[in-house]
Amino acid sequence: MKKIFLLGLFAFPFTVWAQNGIFLLTGQVGQESAPAKVYLNYQQDGQLKTLTSAVVKGAFQFKGTLTDPKQAQLVFDHEGTGMEKLGRTADVKILFLEKGSLLLSSKDSVKNASISGSPLNETYKRFQALMVPSEKAMRMVELEYRNAPEAKQKSQQFQESLQSKLMKLSAEQRVIILQYAKKNPTSFLSLHLLTQLASPDMDTQVMRSAFNALSTNLRGSKLGKELVGKLGTASATAVGGMAPNFTQNDVNGKPVKLSDFKGKYVLLDFWASWCVPCRAQHPNLVKTYNKYKGKNFTILGVSLDDAGKKADWLKAIKSDGLTWTQVSDLKFRDNEVAKLYNINAIPQNFLIDPSGKIIGKNLHGEELNKKLASIFK
């Protein structure tokens, strides 16, 4: 009887929620109960928001207020160990929250769950099908690196080969997104995807063209205005512009400013301990640093690790032999410097000259070495 009561409660018609801008996410995953928990992570007013729900015979529920749709991460903690202790194999599903009642169900895990009552998630499901080939290819590149012997992983030729493959796949994904946005100018997903596509090295002319093709309502929305801001930031961090100054703490909690390095050539390097492509580049980056550190060159690393994973950040610095200055606010993808430089994916870097001017972007491997060789002749 209790189970029937719970299901009846969760199935209540919440038409009023849609009118008041409230979402209700109801889930039924298996038959687990405490200590199992479910976490819902999403951005709200520039901050990462985490909601927690208990699980009763597989049932859980979340409710909140939205001003516009949000992409979210749903995490099922089957053992109740805490989200910060869950690793890469965690049971996770990416979905969209929107006003109204969303129903999620699965026999065993959230990653295999189906969602009903949400037009946006149906749209997202169709878009994901378009990305399957390239995402599968990217996973194969990652596996190629992980399965390679350690000596091969440190090979510059091998690393550059993988980087070339990833860049080609990323370019293919950009084309898919731009074409999708062009064909679906009234879909919120189009605006969301363009926002995710925005990066420091984006072609602002192409992006502005895609953005201007969206409906008036989307362009005037809160997210639309944020994208306009990102396009402006991309222009501000273009080659030839002055690198925005910032302050962030190093591994010992000591504040470090970018301006502290004025007078030197600085490679501002965005990475994280969990980023496989970033870690793959470190052996060559160490060689580059050791070759030019006595010639008025240094590196300033900015990590997108989070507070619960500081130990992983410190371990990666030590095991990869990164002897240059490292900073982070441990806010994961909400890192304030990453937002200042419009970083949506890593690895990415900026080469800054002694006056503080940006003279290069996303220079990796031999490309970086050639640039530095031309400077330090």
Rank of each mutant, 00 (worst) to 15 (best):
A234V: 12
P255C: 04
A234L: 06
K257I: 01
T233I: 15
L231P: 11
G224A: 09
L223Y: 14
K262D: 00
Y265I: 01
F270Y: 05
G263E: 02
T247E: 15
V266Y: 07
A238T: 07
G232M: 04
S259N: 10
V256L: 03
D260G: 04
Q248H: 13
F246T: 09
N249D: 14
F261A: 02
P277F: 06
K257G: 07
L223R: 15
P255T: 08
L231R: 05
R279E: 04
K225V: 13
A280I: 05
L223W: 13
R279P: 12
A243Y: 10
D269T: 01
W274S: 03
L258K: 07
K262V: 01
G240D: 02
N245H: 12
G229K: 13
K262A: 05
M242I: 14
K254E: 09
M242C: 00
M242D: 08
L258N: 05
W274R: 04
A272N: 09
K257H: 11
A280G: 08
P255S: 06
C278I: 04
D260S: 13
V251S: 12
V251Y: 07
A234T: 08
S235A: 13
F246W: 15
V276T: 12
G263P: 06
V276S: 07
S235E: 14
L258T: 05
T237Y: 11
T237I: 15
V266A: 00
M242W: 09
L267S: 03
G224K: 10
A272F: 11
F261L: 11
S235W: 00
L227R: 10
N245Y: 11
W271F: 03
V266I: 05
P244F: 12
A272W: 11
E226I: 09
K254W: 09
